[in-house]
Every structure is written in C-alpha cells, then in structure tokens.
C-alpha cells in the first residue's frame, strides 16, 4: 500500500473531498459541482460505481440509515483521508514542477 503510487481520477478525488462531512449521493453531486464551480458534474451512474469501489477499498463508509434520513449517507474514513493527503502531495509536486518550467520558459 505504502509504495503504491496512485493518481486518483477527478471523480474519485472530488467524491472523497466532499465526504469530509456525511452526504448522500445527490448531495455529493451537488457539492462537487459547487466546489468546482460547475466544471465537474458527476453523473449518477458513474458516482454510484465510484462509491461502491470506495466502500470496497475502505476509503469511505456507509452510515446506518436513521429514521430522519432514509437516504444512504457516506463518510470518509481515516484511510480515505490519508489517500487524499497523499494525493495532495502528488498534485503539489505536479504544480511545482509545471510552474518551475513554464515560468523559466516565459522569462527567457
């Protein structure tokens, strides 16, 4: 697991981010759309597949249904948070290297 270098897909990355607070499926779709200012719109079928895969990996958990809420809600796990943090480092590296080269090129 430690050495496994993974680039998360945009759908997975944003789904994980949105689940730092409990949300149901439609809530995730709305939150991701808002976070990305309408750029990333998750389709229901794709999101469902992503949620199931995340559950299987143990990166998120399904919360027990309560009387007040009949829609299934999800929440990120400690393991999921670790994955997000690793992804942030990876993205930071991409940005830093990109900036270094592009900025140097524009100064020439």
């Amino acid at each position: 697991m430690q050495n496994e270098q993974i680039a998360l897909t945009e759908a997975i990355y944003y789904t994980l981010l949105s689940l730092y607070e409990p949300l149901h499926g439609y809530g995730i779709m709305q939150k991701v759309e808002k976070m990305s200012k309408g750029r990333v719109i998750l389709a229901a079928g794709t999101l469902y597949g992503a949620l199931n895969n995340l559950l299987k990996k143990g990166w998120i958990e399904a919360l027990p249904k309560s009387a007040s809420n009949r829609k299934k809600e999800y929440l990120i796990t400690a393991q999921g948070k670790k994955i997000v943090e690793m992804e942030l480092l990876r993205l930071q590296e991409l940005i830093n290297n990109g900036k270094k080269i592009v900025d140097a090129g524009s100064e020439r």
Binding site: T9, E10, A11, I41, L42, A43, A44, G45, T46, L47, G49
Partner: peptide
C-alpha cells in the same frame, strides 16, 4: 438540469 448516467471514460468503457 443536465442528465447523464456516465461522466467519465471509464464508466462508458465498462
């Protein structure tokens, strides 16, 4: 609003 079942290439391929 828009309605799609798939929003990435992976799920379309599947």
């Amino acid at each position: 609003g828009p309605f799609n079942l798939f929003s990435d290439l992976d799920s379309r391929i599947v």
